[in-house]
């Protein structure tokens, strides 16, 4: 029987130069349900579809959007308990930064910290990578930001991105509309996010108020013409109802017919 000799730990390279444990951790991200993030000039938005953990509706949907600080939030795909560790770490760092500097932590700094923390797990014997992918959205002095985070410790700034199961479909939608995101209003941004989510749903599933939530953080006009932070707000349940309805009405708008065609090669 075939056996892979190079996937017993996360510190050993295969002869092809791969580290299998990291790649397997990447698979855990693909098991998680899809989350989408988009950044415009004024807002960053996160949208997600949740899986029910137990069959037969014995459980509620798993929460996937977490507020880190007033100005940042994450969306998770993968092992929720691993995400809690990172989420708690990010909350502590944001709080610490507020205490010592009296300002919200810059998003780039925060993402750099989790990137470094996750990378260590891939280079120390006896540790395992976080089985989690994140989208980190937030605003700082340089405006709204969206970052992708992978178990390898890789972080990258994105205009729009999707991770999780069947997320390729959502990414195809986002690629198609990328030009329009920068100048979107926050309402339009949310609708783009929900349409992208819809793309990656399985055949008979739909966006509902139970399985969909939206998070928004952005900039608003403050006193004396300076822009100030519009704190992160999570929209859940009935609060997303009108948005879901508006995207189900405008079906077929964004040329979804051909999108389904070429985006079909689904992950794993």
């Amino acid at each position: 029987m075939f056996r892979n000799n190079y996937d017993n730990d996360s510190v050993t390279f295969s002869p092809q130069g791969r580290i299998f444990q990291i790649e397997y951790a990447g698979e855990a991200v693909k098991q998680g349900s899809v989350v989408v993030g988009i950044a415009s000039k004024t807002h960053a938005d996160l949208a997600r579809v949740a899986q029910q953990r137990n069959a037969e509706e014995l459980s509620s949907y798993q929460k996937k959007l977490f507020e880190i600080d007033e100005h940042t939030a994450i969306a998770i795909a993968g092992l929720t308990s691993d995400a809690r560790v990172l989420s708690n770490f990010m909350k502590q760092q944001s709080l610490g930064h507020r205490l010592t500097y009296g300002r919200p932590i810059p998003i780039h700094t925060l993402v750099g910290m989790i990137g470094e923390k996750a990378q260590i797990n891939t280079q120390v014997y006896g540790k395992r990578p976080y089985g989690i992918g994140l989208l980190v959205a937030g605003v700082d002095e340089n405006g709204p930001h969206l970052f992708e985070f992978q178990p390898s410790g890789m972080t990258e700034e994105m205009v729009a991105f999707a991770i999780g199961a069947r997320s390729q479909m959502a990414r195809t939608y986002l690629e198609r509309n990328i030009e329009s995101f920068a100048d979107c209003s926050k309402e339009e941004l949310v609708k783009h996010g929900l349409r992208a989510l819809k793309e990656s749903l399985v055949q008979d599933k739909e966006l509902t108020v139970e399985n969909t939530s939206v998070g928004l953080v952005g900039l608003k006009e403050g006193p004396n013409g300076r822009s100030s932070i519009e704190p992160f707000k999570l929209y859940d349940g009935f609060e997303v109802k009108s948005w879901i309805e508006s995207v189900s009405e405008s079906q077929g708008g964004e040329g979804e017919g051909d999108a389904a065609g070429e985006g079909m090669e689904v992950d794993s």
């Binding site: 009296g102 300002r103 810059p106 700094t109 700082d140 002095e141 340089n142």
Partner: peptide, 15 residues
């Protein structure tokens, strides 16, 4: 981190 404009103002620095 932010080459184009300074981000730590006097209040941040004092803190």
């Amino acid at each position: 981190e932010s080459p184009d404009k300074p981000r730590l103002n006097a209040a941040n620095l004092h803190r």
